[in-house]
């Protein structure tokens, strides 16, 4: 039981919080701009490398430098939207999807050109685990990831339900034509979508990068589970995407627990496939997700 909590449940929540933060952006971009953003994972990587570059200049705790990564990711997102996505906005969205594939590649190759392609470890050394009641050994990073995500979820919820910008975002996600007729500033909504999506992606990326190591494929490898989480939560439902992230994270980790007999239920090498299978099954049987999202 203790083993289950220490090695499966808690890591599940930790990777779940990474997926949750990434999936929020994917879900909002899909809901508001109407396309699946395939460069979102690499946008995460951009944020991670922003933090990494900052730690080289200012050797302090990387958490203090997360805003640098967020700023870089936000800038990158607004830039590619302006230069690459916006000119295609009047065409069928599939062109923007193809374009976002290209942007994913552009982000990654820029990271590889500037940062090199080797693994980078954030230089904070080994962190002793938190030990509770002599039995629960928790990585402090995992605790930080889960609590940060919980705080962000609350703040985001308040923002979306109370603020003018947040309500406008939900309105555009609901019905872009009616939003235009109501005179809402859709360009501002689009801008805020990128700002929030990119900022959360950067935070998610830092948690993922600190947990293992930062490398140029970091974000791309997380992309499909994040899509799975966004679909699970229902497109255009940021809170659903959060829940979806945790569900996918837990499903991945718990799938390799020895539920029956001695061996893992699903070999850990197929752990990532669990998310894809959930995603494909959802797409086919319940594309509106668990929380009644939009069906685009």
């Amino acid at each position: 039981m203790i083993e289950f909590i220490n090695f499966y449940l808690v890591p599940g929540f930790a990777i779940g919080s990474v997926y949750a933060l990434g999936a929020v952006g994917i879900s909002m971009i899909f809901g508001i701009l109407r396309f699946a953003h395939f460069a979102h994972g690499d946008l995460m990587t951009v944020g991670v490398y922003g933090v990494f570059a900052a730690t080289v200049v200012f050797p302090v705790n990387p958490f203090l430098l997360v805003p640098v990564g967020m700023a870089l990711a936000i800038f990158a997102a607004l830039f590619v939207d302006k230069v690459f996505y916006q000119p295609l906005r009047k065409l069928p969205t599939i062109y923007t999807v193809i374009s976002s594939f290209g942007v994913a590649l552009i982000f990654r190759s820029l990271i590889q050109i500037i940062g090199g392609s080797e693994n980078r470890v954030f230089g904070s050394g080994i962190r002793p685990p938190l030990i509770l009641f002599d039995t629960f050994r928790l990585s402090s990073l995992h605790v930080q990831a889960v609590t940060t995500t919980a705080v962000i979820a609350v703040v985001l919820h308040i923002f979306l339900s109370k603020s003018m910008t947040g309500r406008s975002m939900r309105a555009v996600a609901d019905d872009p034509e009616l939003a235009q007729i109501s005179g809402l500033d859709t360009e501002k909504v689009v801008r805020w979508t990128w700002i929030i999506g990119a900022a959360l992606a950067a935070i998610a990326g830092v948690f993922a990068g600190l947990d293992t190591s930062a490398h140029p494929n970091l974000g791309w490898n997380l992309l499909l589970p994040m899509f799975a989480a966004a679909i699970l939560g229902g497109i255009g439902k940021p809170m659903g995407a959060m829940a979806g992230g945790f569900i996918i994270g837990l499903a991945e980790e718990l799938s390799s627990y020895h539920w029956i007999g001695e061996s893992a239920l699903i070999s850990p090498s197929y752990k990532t496939a669990v998310a894809f299978v959930i995603m494909i099954a959802l797409l086919i049987f319940k594309p509106q997700g668990l929380f009644k999202g939009r069906l685009l």
Partner: peptide
């Protein structure tokens, strides 16, 4: 101000929020 024939409310927003949206532009 205009009301289209169909799809004229934001279905996932509450009634109060729908009314509030009407004030944002002006």
């Amino acid at each position: 101000s205009a009301v289209p024939q169909s799809h004229n409310v934001f279905p996932n927003l509450t009634v109060d929020e729908n009314l509030d949206i009407g004030t944002y532009a002006a």
